[in-house]
């Protein structure tokens, strides 16, 4: 019984350490398409973050590098 338990635990540990990346580099052509970018034009994204920070109470976690607008 003890052996079986140890065996199961070892098997689980083995399965944990052998989770392999499931999307190979050659399968990422669609993800590499420029339309699949969270922030395509950095100047545009930075500007929209600035406009929203000035008009809304919320700030932070806007994505694309973050940082404040340094303005009042």
């Amino acid at each position: 019984m003890k052996t079986i338990l140890i065996g199961i635990i070892l098997l689980l540990l083995q399965s944990c350490t052998t989770i392999e990346p499931w999307v190979s580099p050659f399968e990422r052509s669609k993800l590499a398409d420029p339309i699949m970018s969270f922030s395509r034009a950095p100047a545009d994204s930075a500007y929209m973050h600035h406009v929203r920070q000035a008009r809304e109470g919320a700030r932070g976690a806007e994505g694309g590098g973050g940082g404040g607008c340094g303005c009042n």
């Binding site: 990422r28 969270f38 700030r59 994505g63 940082g67 404040g68």
Partner: peptide
């Protein structure tokens, strides 16, 4: 002002990508 930011981007499938971010200011 000080801000701390942490972001995780994960490819989920060949067509789906996800991003989770937290920021404290």
């Amino acid at each position: 002002h000080q801000s701390f930011r942490l972001e995780l981007t994960q490819i989920l499938t060949t067509q789906l990508i996800m991003n989770v971010g937290v920021e404290s200011v």
